[in-house]
Amino acid sequence: MQIKSKVYNNTLYVLLCGELDEHSATHTRITLDNVFAGGDFNQIIIDLSELEFMDSTGIGVLIGRYKKMKDRQIPIYICNPSKQAEKIFKMTGLYDIMPKIV
Protein backbone atom coordinates (compact mmCIF):
# COMPACT_ATOMS: atom_id res chain seq x y z
CA MET A 1 0.00 0.00 0.00
CA GLN A 2 1.29 3.38 -1.01
CA ILE A 3 -0.31 6.55 0.30
CA LYS A 4 0.07 9.90 -1.44
CA SER A 5 -1.25 13.14 0.02
CA LYS A 6 -1.32 16.87 -0.55
CA VAL A 7 -3.09 19.88 0.92
CA TYR A 8 -4.84 22.25 -1.45
CA ASN A 9 -7.36 24.97 -0.54
CA ASN A 10 -7.71 23.77 3.07
CA THR A 11 -8.49 20.23 1.87
CA LEU A 12 -6.26 17.23 2.50
CA TYR A 13 -6.35 14.94 -0.54
CA VAL A 14 -5.29 11.35 0.14
CA LEU A 15 -4.76 8.77 -2.61
CA LEU A 16 -4.64 5.10 -1.56
CA CYS A 17 -2.67 3.00 -4.07
CA GLY A 18 -2.51 -0.80 -3.85
CA GLU A 19 -4.38 -3.34 -1.75
CA LEU A 20 -6.04 -2.75 1.62
CA ASP A 21 -6.40 -5.98 3.58
CA GLU A 22 -5.32 -7.34 6.96
CA HIS A 23 -1.72 -7.54 5.72
CA SER A 24 -1.50 -3.84 4.84
CA ALA A 25 -3.91 -2.54 7.51
CA THR A 26 -1.38 -1.66 10.21
CA HIS A 27 0.87 0.24 7.79
CA THR A 28 -2.18 2.04 6.37
CA ARG A 29 -3.44 3.02 9.84
CA ILE A 30 -0.08 4.40 10.95
CA THR A 31 0.56 6.28 7.70
CA LEU A 32 -2.91 7.82 7.62
CA ASP A 33 -2.65 8.88 11.26
CA ASN A 34 0.69 10.58 10.50
CA VAL A 35 -0.70 12.33 7.42
CA PHE A 36 -3.85 13.41 9.28
CA ALA A 37 -1.83 14.69 12.25
CA GLY A 38 -0.10 17.49 10.40
CA GLY A 39 -0.98 20.22 7.94
CA ASP A 40 -3.49 22.98 7.67
CA PHE A 41 -6.82 21.62 6.43
CA ASN A 42 -10.45 21.50 7.49
CA GLN A 43 -11.64 18.50 5.47
CA ILE A 44 -10.22 15.26 4.07
CA ILE A 45 -10.98 13.57 0.75
CA ILE A 46 -9.87 9.95 0.39
CA ASP A 47 -9.54 8.96 -3.27
CA LEU A 48 -9.86 5.19 -3.90
CA SER A 49 -9.34 5.29 -7.68
CA GLU A 50 -5.93 3.57 -7.35
CA LEU A 51 -7.07 1.06 -4.72
CA GLU A 52 -6.87 -2.32 -6.46
CA PHE A 53 -8.43 -4.35 -3.66
CA MET A 54 -10.24 -3.82 -0.36
CA ASP A 55 -12.10 -6.18 1.96
CA SER A 56 -13.95 -5.49 5.22
CA THR A 57 -10.64 -4.85 6.99
CA GLY A 58 -10.73 -1.51 5.14
CA ILE A 59 -13.98 -0.60 6.91
CA GLY A 60 -12.31 -1.01 10.30
CA VAL A 61 -9.38 1.15 9.18
CA LEU A 62 -11.64 3.92 7.81
CA ILE A 63 -14.00 3.98 10.81
CA GLY A 64 -10.99 4.17 13.13
CA ARG A 65 -9.71 7.26 11.28
CA TYR A 66 -13.23 8.78 11.25
CA LYS A 67 -13.41 8.51 15.05
CA LYS A 68 -10.08 10.32 15.43
CA MET A 69 -11.04 13.12 13.03
CA LYS A 70 -14.50 13.48 14.58
CA ASP A 71 -12.85 14.73 17.77
CA ARG A 72 -11.16 17.44 15.67
CA GLN A 73 -14.41 18.13 13.77
CA ILE A 74 -12.77 17.40 10.43
CA PRO A 75 -15.11 15.60 8.01
CA ILE A 76 -13.83 12.81 5.73
CA TYR A 77 -15.23 12.18 2.24
CA ILE A 78 -14.76 9.17 -0.05
CA CYS A 79 -14.44 9.26 -3.83
CA ASN A 80 -13.93 6.78 -6.69
CA PRO A 81 -14.60 3.46 -4.89
CA SER A 82 -14.54 0.21 -6.88
CA LYS A 83 -17.81 -1.66 -7.35
CA GLN A 84 -16.84 -4.12 -4.58
CA ALA A 85 -15.74 -1.36 -2.17
CA GLU A 86 -18.99 0.50 -2.89
CA LYS A 87 -21.00 -2.61 -2.02
CA ILE A 88 -19.16 -2.99 1.30
CA PHE A 89 -19.60 0.74 2.10
CA LYS A 90 -23.34 0.54 1.45
CA MET A 91 -23.73 -2.66 3.49
CA THR A 92 -21.97 -1.16 6.49
CA GLY A 93 -23.51 2.31 6.28
CA LEU A 94 -20.06 3.88 5.96
CA TYR A 95 -21.42 6.62 3.69
CA ASP A 96 -23.56 7.86 6.61
CA ILE A 97 -20.40 9.02 8.35
CA MET A 98 -18.06 9.45 5.34
CA PRO A 99 -20.21 10.68 2.46
CA LYS A 100 -19.29 9.81 -1.09
CA ILE A 101 -18.48 12.74 -3.35
CA VAL A 102 -18.15 12.74 -7.12
Binding site: R29, D55, S56, T57, I59, G60, V61, I63, G64, Q84, K87, I88, M91, T92
Partner: peptide, 15 residues
Amino acid sequence: SEERSGMGFAVMESF
Protein backbone atom coordinates in the same frame (compact mmCIF):
# COMPACT_ATOMS: atom_id res chain seq x y z
CA SER B 1 -10.61 -2.93 20.29
CA GLU B 2 -8.65 -3.74 17.11
CA GLU B 3 -10.82 -1.60 14.80
CA ARG B 4 -12.50 -4.66 13.30
CA SER B 5 -15.77 -4.23 11.47
CA GLY B 6 -17.31 -7.63 12.19
CA MET B 7 -18.50 -7.75 8.58
CA GLY B 8 -16.44 -10.69 7.30
CA PHE B 9 -19.22 -13.27 7.01
CA ALA B 10 -21.76 -10.64 5.89
CA VAL B 11 -19.43 -9.68 3.02
CA MET B 12 -18.92 -13.35 2.06
CA GLU B 13 -22.69 -13.85 1.98
CA SER B 14 -23.25 -10.74 -0.06
CA PHE B 15 -20.57 -11.55 -2.68
